[in-house]
Design a protein around this nucleic acid. Structure first.
Lengths: 190, 190
DNA sequence: ACCTGAACACCGTTCAAGT
DNA sequence: ACCTGAACACCGTTCAAGT
């Protein structure tokens, strides 16, 4: 019998997979333990219960999302980059529903892993707005507004009454936001 | 001993209260039953398990939110009405976190109570945009975009990295969206 | 028709005991 | 240091039995 050893990496990976499969809320120590071939109580050596496990998933998911969005941003300039990022964000949410849901988990301590992961994600948007010509303050406002709008759309997309064309709705939202942000930018420069 | 009788109304009210107190996810048959003074199994006479209970909460919450937003819309015209609705929405979310969270629950059947409640809420926004001069199609797009953005902001407001001024952030988002929607409106008319 | 209590399954958590 | 299995609490759900 080979001794069963659990690494933090294997634990996280398995938890992320299970979250995407069964839903983030349904993520259970039992399921992860079974998939890893260990007793459920073993997981307390590596994570702080079910909340600790969900925290691990949230951190990994936020980082994965950040990388996806960042990759979408390269190679396109300004406004096009924003649209590309928006659609990459959406694709991530559709492909990884559990990871997307985990994004809502609040950070515990200011400056902890999850908090910094969230800041990094926001930072990608900030950079794009700065590249367009916004000041840092404006860019931060614009980035927060954009992330809020995107998250809201994706969260409601599958819960709300079915629209005829979600794709068009999303494009409309991104466009309106973009024009609105350009407006405030122009207004602040006059 | 007076016989304990549970009405659907008392059940819903208690569940809504408990959702706001303990969180929508933590809503439990046990807690509701205890607060009503009956055995947990009794609740199966009135609701279809825990999911049925959450469904009841979601319907009630959506209706409450709709009334709040509708009330905020009267007495102000056009753009001002939209801002007022946005802030009423936010106040509702802050005061009733459980009800706000229940808003994310998807409707089961098309045309069921929850689906129509969601449509009614959206309808309030549609009406305002029509009053401003948008066509019905445009108004529907604008309403969906607005609801998405508002929901996203409120969902992330307490989970994301603390901003210096959430109030300003929210105002900024509502403003940008409003200007962006006016832009697309103007563009489609030229 | 509505309510109760017993019963069972399932999950989270702790802990003494093994290696 | 890491893993196990027993133990316990808690919640959801079902059902036969009461009124």
């Amino acid at each position: 019998m080979p001794k069963k050893r659990v690494t933090l990496n294997a634990l996280t990976t398995t938890a992320v997979e299970l979250a995407d499969t069964d839903g983030f809320d349904a993520l259970a120590l039992t399921g992860v333990a079974e998939k890893l071939g260990v007793a459920a109580s073993t997981l307390y050596t590596h994570a702080d219960g079910v909340d600790g496990l969900k925290y691990l998933v949230a951190v990994a998911a936020t980082r994965n999302l950040t990388e996806t969005v960042r990759n979408a941003a390269i190679g396109a300039s300004g406004p096009d980059a924003l649209t590309a990022m928006g659609f990459a964000y959406r694709e991530f949410a559709l492909d990884h529903p559990g990871q997307f849901a985990s994004t809502l988990l609040p950070a515990k301590l200011e400056g902890d892993e999850l908090a910094t992961a969230k800041l990094t994600l926001l930072g990608v948007f900030v950079l794009v707005y700065q590249a367009i010509g916004h000041s840092e303050h404006e860019a931060r406002l614009a980035a927060r507004a954009t992330c809020s709008a995107i998250h809201g759309f994706l969260a409601l997309e599958h819960t709300n009454t079915p629209s005829s064309d979600h794709d068009a709705d999303y494009r409309f939202l991104l466009n309106a936001l973009q024009h609105g942000l350009l407006h405030t930018h122009a207004a602040s420069q006059t």
